[in-house]
């Protein structure tokens, strides 16, 4: 097993320990409380499985057909504010999934994209990649909260990119 698998297993164990503690506290308060919690949690999980499956499999295929060369060409180190803006929009359009955005960002950095642009890109991808909003967040939270959050988060990647530009780092 490699390090990443080990960390992932440890996190799963920690999460289930937390579930165990919470379930125990609920059961001590009342049996009904425990049953309700377990039932609702279990039902949410089952309802989410097909949606998440589509998301995971879909992002694999979407990543496979993306043109990395084109992305690298648009967000070079001399692209300045416009490059940061473009990177932010591409970040939002990049499919979700655990690694797609980091993989593309790192590839772009290697093939000549600027660091501030890549920071704006990965920040936008982390905060509001459209696919993740539609795939996951909107099923778990009220839609109007999701849209509001995306709207107020819009300037944040641009600020991160500008911050990197002004600092001259990394």
């Amino acid at each position: 097993m490699d390090l990443i698998t080990v960390i992932s297993v440890v996190i799963a164990i920690l999460l289930w320990l937390l579930v165990g503690v919470l379930a125990l506290i609920a059961a001590m308060r009342s049996k009904a409380l425990f049953r309700e919690g377990a039932f609702e949690g279990g039902r949410d999980f089952v309802v989410l499985i097909p949606r998440v499956m589509i998301g995971v499999v879909g992002s694999g295929y979407l990543a496979a057909i993306l043109p990395p060369d084109l992305i690298a060409a648009w967000i070079g180190p001399n692209s300045g504010f416009i490059g940061i803006l473009i990177a932010t929009i591409i970040g939002a359009a990049t499919p979700g999934g655990a690694v797609v955005g980091f993989a593309i960002g790192a590839a772009a950095l290697k093939s000549g994209a600027g660091a501030p642009q890549v920071i704006a890109y990965s920040t936008a991808w982390s905060l509001y990649t459209i696919q993740r909003l539609l795939n996951w967040e909107i099923h778990m939270m009220a839609p109007r909260f999701v849209w509001m959050r995306a709207a107020v988060s819009f300037p944040l990647p641009i600020l991160a990119g500008l911050g990197a530009l002004l600092l001259g780092k990394p």
Binding site: A12, A23, A26, G41, I49, V52, G60, A98
Partner: peptide, 28 residues
């Protein structure tokens, strides 16, 4: 497809834990 389904299987236990944590936290 195979790689992504493996990824999904790895995610399921954490996802189930997340749903249960949320359900219990809301009540407790």
């Amino acid at each position: 497809l195979t790689k992504d389904l493996q990824l999904l299987v790895g995610m399921l236990p954490k996802m189930a834990a997340g749903c249960l944590i949320a359900a219990f936290v809301t009540r407790l």
